[in-house]
């Protein structure tokens, strides 16, 4: 499918790309710094200032804030994912119940959960609880739908094959249906990670004393542009890390999947 280019080796190409990317990054940073120094940096801050602030943060408490945010994310993921998976497994098998409840669930799902953040803060206060619940709600629906689809998508022939071999209904579930749904569950988890991250940050922006989002909110409240950009950098780094981990994990867990598209 791919055209063979006689003049380029795969290794050489990747190398050149990497160099170009590094060059672009350096150029952008240098341009930002010089333009800021020349024309004023009230709104845009300077890379050097941001770096200094990041250094200050790293020395005093950045780790703690990051830990709080991560705890909210993982706690909410665990809560939301587990309930979503359980409900998905249950409803996936009982056709009647799922048909009846479908419009309710789809209706609830169509409301952007993060926009209910103020409501949750009203109920649960200012700590981690509303954030965890927010993350849990966001991930619940995603995992529920994915698990449900996974159970429905199980090839009946596989179940029958095992049944003829002598599997009991419980063994059918444990050895065919559950593992079969796992592929969908894992995909669902991977998709859920960015949503969970966004939900946690949203909660923190609205009301929090701890967490990276709270750093962002505090900087914004004081019109502290340097702090604001620094917080954005941290969030970008966390987001990229989380995304990369999730993708890596999915690839390993589902390495049995056929590569064909």
């Amino acid at each position: 499918m791919a055209e063979a280019r006689a003049d380029a080796t795969p290794g050489g190409d990747a190398h050149a790309t990497l160099l170009a990317q590094a060059a672009v990054a350096i150029v952008l940073i240098v341009a930002w710094e010089s333009a800021g120094r020349a024309f004023g940096h009230a709104w845009t801050s300077l890379p050097s200032l941001i770096a200094v602030r990041l250094g200050e943060w790293a020395a005093s408490g950045l780790a703690r804030h990051a830990a709080v945010t991560l705890f909210e994310i993982t706690g909410g993921l665990a809560l939301g994912a587990s309930s979503g998976i359980v409900l998905g497994l249950v409803l996936g098998r009982t056709v009647t119940l799922s048909v009846v409840l479908r419009p309710f669930i789809v209706g609830l799902y169509s409301v952007p959960i993060v926009t209910l953040a103020p409501l949750l803060i009203l109920w649960f206060g200012l700590d981690m609880m509303p954030k965890i619940v927010l993350v849990a709600l966001s991930t619940f629906f995603l995992l529920f739908f994915n698990t449900f689809a996974g159970v429905q998508a199980i090839d009946r022939d596989l179940v029958e094959a095992l049944r003829i071999m002598g599997a009991s209904p419980r063994e059918e579930f444990a050895r065919v249906i559950l593992p079969g749904a796992v592929a969908w569950i894992v995909s669902g988890l991977k998709i859920a990670v960015p949503y969970a991250f966004a939900a946690a940050v949203t909660g923190e922006l609205l009301a929090a004393r701890d967490g990276i989002g709270s750093l962002l909110a505090a900087a914004a409240a004081q019109f502290d542009m340097t702090g604001l950009y620094a917080a954005l950098v941290v969030l970008m780094a966390l987001g990229t890390l989380a995304s990369a981990l999730a993708t890596r994990a999915e690839r390993w867990l589902l390495r049995w999947r056929p590569a064909a598209q």
């Binding site: 090839d155 095992l162 009991s168 050895r175 065919v176 056929p258």
Partner: peptide
């Protein structure tokens, strides 16, 4: 059957072992 019903998430040896793992045996 004509269509092979191997469990896609199991390796070759795990697939072959499947009938022997069942409680009925």
């Amino acid at each position: 059957t004509q269509k092979d019903t191997l469990l896609p998430w199991r390796t070759t040896e795990a697939n072959i072992a499947a009938p022997l793992e069942l409680a009925c045996r």
